[in-house]
Amino acid sequence: MSVQLLFDPLRKGLFRTLLLLTFFAATKTVDAQTQDPQKAASGFSAKLVNIESAVNEPFRFSASLHNGTATPQVYELRSELPAGWQISYRVEGSQVTSVNLAGGQTREIAIEITAPANAAARKYIIPIKAASSSLTLPLQLEAVVKGSYGASLSTPSGRLSEELTAGSHKDIELELQNTGTLPLSSLSISSQLPTGWEATFSPSQIEKLDGGKKVTIKVTLKVPDKTIAGDYSATFTLGGNNANAQAAFRIFVKTSVLSGWIGILIIVVAVAAVYVLIRKYGRR
C-alpha cells in the first residue's frame, strides 16, 4: 500500500473536521449577535420628521420609541431648542420627561414644539435624544415656520363708543386688519346685542385678506322703539379659519325729541286735569 493511500483518509477526515468547526463558529457568532442586549433594533423614529406651520400654531409630531434590548430601560428625553422655543412630550395623554420601557417594548410619544412669536420664517432643525444608562437614540425633527396668522377688529379712528336714539338706526364703520404675514380666508362678522337690537354687515363675508391688508365693514345698527335710555354694550366678533378678533362697543341710547315732547304734553294735560278737578269740586 502506498503512502498516498494511507494519507487520503486522514486528509478527508481533517477536511470534514475543519468544515464542522467553521459551521459551529458561524452559528455561535449569529447567536451572540441575536442575544446582544445592545443590538441595533432599539430605535427612536417619527412618522413625519418635517412639518410646516404658522409661527403661532404648534408643531405636532408623532414619534415611536422602541427598546430592542432584553432588559428594562429608562430613557430620558432631551432636546436642543433655539432660543425662545418650547417642547413637551406626552405618553397616553400625560406629559412626561422620561419613558420606562421593558425589554422589547415600544411606546408612542406625542411631541409638541412651539415657536416664539418673533420666529423668522425658515426651517429649524430640532435635535432630540432618548438617553438611557447604556443607549442614546437620536431623532432629528424639522420645524418649518411659514409665517404668522393674526387679525384685529376696531374702527378707523379707534373710537369704540356711539350714541343712538331709541327707534333709530346708525351706520358704524369697522376696520378689519390682517396683522400677520399669511392670508386669512373665509372671514365673517357676527354680533352680540341687547334683546331686540339688529345689526347687518356689508360685506358680511370676506373670502380672502392678504397679510398686512385692511378692509372696511359697514355695520347698520338698529335700536328698537321704547328702548330705555342708558348705556348698553354691543360686541362684534370676527371668525375665520385661522384668526379671530373682537370689538366691544359702548352704546348710549337716548330718547327721541318727539317722545320728550309727548311726555311733557302728558304731564301738562295731567296737571291741567287736576287743576280743573280742584276748581270744580274744591268749592263744595
Rank of each mutant, 00 (worst) to 15 (best):
Lys218Leu: 09
Ser191Glu: 15
Val219Pro: 04
Pro9Asn: 08
Ile126Glu: 01
Pro72Phe: 02
Leu6Arg: 12
Ala151Val: 06
Leu174Gln: 06
Thr114Val: 14
Ile228Lys: 15
Glu173Thr: 15
Val145Phe: 02
Thr165Ser: 10
Thr216Arg: 10
Ile111Asp: 05
Lys213Met: 10
Glu207His: 05
Val99Cys: 11
Leu77Ser: 01
Ser88Trp: 00
Asn244Gln: 15
Gly240Asn: 03
Gly84Thr: 02
Ile113Tyr: 04
Glu112Thr: 15
Thr136Ala: 15
Arg283Thr: 11
Gly239Asn: 14
Ser188Cys: 02
Glu112Tyr: 01
Ser94Ala: 11
Asp36Ser: 10
Ile125Ser: 12
Leu48Trp: 07
Ala26His: 04
Leu160Gln: 10
Ile217His: 01
Ser64Asp: 05
Ile87Val: 14
Ala121Val: 05
Gly230Met: 05
Leu10Tyr: 09
Lys218Tyr: 00
Ser88Lys: 13
Ser256Ala: 10
Gln73Thr: 07
Phe236Asn: 06
Val96Glu: 06
Ala40Tyr: 02
Val49Gly: 03
Glu173Pro: 00
Lys123Asp: 11
Phe201Gly: 06
Val30Thr: 09
Asp36Thr: 01
Ala131Phe: 04
Gln35Met: 13
Arg250His: 07
Ala270Gln: 02
Gln205Thr: 14
Val271Arg: 03
Lys39Val: 13
Gly211Tyr: 08
Leu174Arg: 08
Leu77Tyr: 02
Lys146Ile: 15
Gly150Asn: 08
Thr237Asn: 13
Asp171Glu: 10
Ala119Trp: 09
Val274Arg: 07
Thr237Ser: 13
Arg279Thr: 10
Phe236Arg: 09
Gly13Ala: 15
Phe61Asn: 03
Lys218Ile: 10
Thr34Gln: 11
Ser45Pro: 00
Thr216Tyr: 09
Ala115His: 02
Thr195Phe: 06
Lys226Ile: 03
Ala143Tyr: 09
Lys123Met: 09
Phe15Cys: 04
Ser134Ala: 12
Gly230Ala: 05
Ile125Cys: 02
Asp225Tyr: 02
Phe7Trp: 12
Ala110Glu: 15
Leu14Glu: 10
Glu112Gln: 15
Pro194Thr: 04
Ser161Phe: 13
Gly167Gln: 07
Asp231Tyr: 06
Lys214Asn: 09
Leu209Phe: 07
Val253Cys: 04
Phe249Ser: 05
Gln140Leu: 13
His169Gln: 14
Gln95Cys: 01
Ser233Pro: 00
Thr27Leu: 14
Asn67Arg: 03
Ala63Val: 12
Lys28Ile: 13
Gln246Leu: 05
Gly68Val: 01
Arg16Val: 11
Glu207Pro: 00
Ala270Met: 07
Asn118Trp: 08
Leu6Thr: 08
Phe7Arg: 14
Gly13Ile: 15
Arg159Ala: 12
Tyr149Pro: 08
Gln140Thr: 14
Glu163Asp: 06
Lys254Glu: 12
Gly147Arg: 01
Ser42Asp: 05
Lys47Arg: 10
